[in-house]
């Protein structure tokens, strides 16, 4: 990764963060903390790793993306609009009456492969996609982004068993390890550690990265080990990019006041200027 590519991705991520803030502030609802923590990984996928033209064309050889933590949807919508899957003006309908831009992604929206929202569904669905694509000798790769709190769902571990059993080297599962879930620190709600060892012991190739650093994200997403799926434990900061939201569980789904909005916007615009 050269410096220029990283700067480009950082700029895109900064723009997506501004959209996340605007969507949630305007609609007065949303899950801001997890959207901000995971947006760098989503940006890396859509602006560097995946061939978006193939996705738009519905090419059977396209890569698949599954947002298993469906509540981190605002950044995903921002990306899809920016990439032309639907008009940017439609973003203003987010969470409004009769919109298709629900607070969890639905496959009614162009570019959304599968509707999600209930946790613990994305990994097994991605496993099913990867099994079928592998058997059809497709070059496609399947990426799924899960939350760390989501790891509490038993169905995640059913699928974690199946991935290595079917030697799914066309599957990458990213855990947005922001350490906070709605009730507080993950380790106080239901201990997840040693998370990397858990995936390793299930037979996954495991890569641990700083999930808010493109220099680490890109190589991790491109990692392939023959015969094994890859789990990326993506260590992130919940609320990343807005100082007063960072590492605060309350910002899981709090909506900023006008004053907070102004401050947050100043910080995000500052980041955009630096780039």
């Amino acid at each position: 990764m050269n410096h220029e590519s990283i700067r480009f991705l950082e700029e895109q991520a900064a723009r997506r963060r501004i959209d996340i803030l605007n969507l949630i502030y305007k609609a007065k609802t949303g899950h801001i903390g997890g959207s901000l923590s995971s947006i760098d990984v989503l940006t890396a996928l859509y602006y560097h790793v995946m061939d978006v033209d193939k996705i738009k064309a519905g090419d059977p050889e396209r890569d698949r993306f599954v947002l298993s933590k469906g509540h981190s949807v605002e950044g995903f919508y921002s990306i899809l609009a920016d990439k032309g899957f639907f008009p940017k003006e439609e973003l203003s309908t987010y969470a409004q009456f009769h919109t298709r831009l629900a607070c969890h992604p639905t496959s009614k929206i162009p570019g959304v492969e599968v509707s999600t929202g209930s946790l613990g569904h994305g990994l097994p669905v991605a496993v099913g996609m990867a099994i079928a694509l592998k058997r059809d000798n497709r070059k496609s790769h399947v990426y799924v982004v899960m939350g760390d709190g989501e790891q509490g769902e038993g169905s995640v571990w059913e699928a974690a068993m199946a991935g290595p059993a079917y030697k799914l080297d066309n599957l990458t599962a990213i855990v947005d390890r922001n350490h906070l879930q709605i009730s507080g620190n993950t380790e106080n709600v239901m201990c997840l550690e040693p998370l990397a060892d858990r995936y390793r012991s299930f037979g996954w190739n495991v890569v641990c990265i700083n999930g808010n650093d493109f220099g680490e994200i890109i190589p991790a997403l491109l990692t392939r080990v023959p015969g094994k799926p890859t789990a990326v434990i993506s260590d992130t900061v919940k609320g990343k990019g807005i100082s007063f939201m960072e590492n605060q569980a309350a910002w899981h789904h709090k909506v900023p006041t006008e004053e907070q909005y102004q401050q947050a916007m100043e910080e995000l615009e500052q980041k955009l200027k630096i780039n």
Binding site: V114, P124, A132, S155
Partner: peptide, 26 residues
């Protein structure tokens, strides 16, 4: 064998995996 998938005793996984496979055209 190429059209058969054993998921083990994991009904939740089996149904979701089936949906994932169906999304690729099966």
């Amino acid at each position: 064998p190429e059209q058969f998938v054993e998921m083990g005793i994991a009904e939740q996984d089996a149904v979701s995996v089936s949906a994932g496979m169906a999304l690729t055209g099966k």
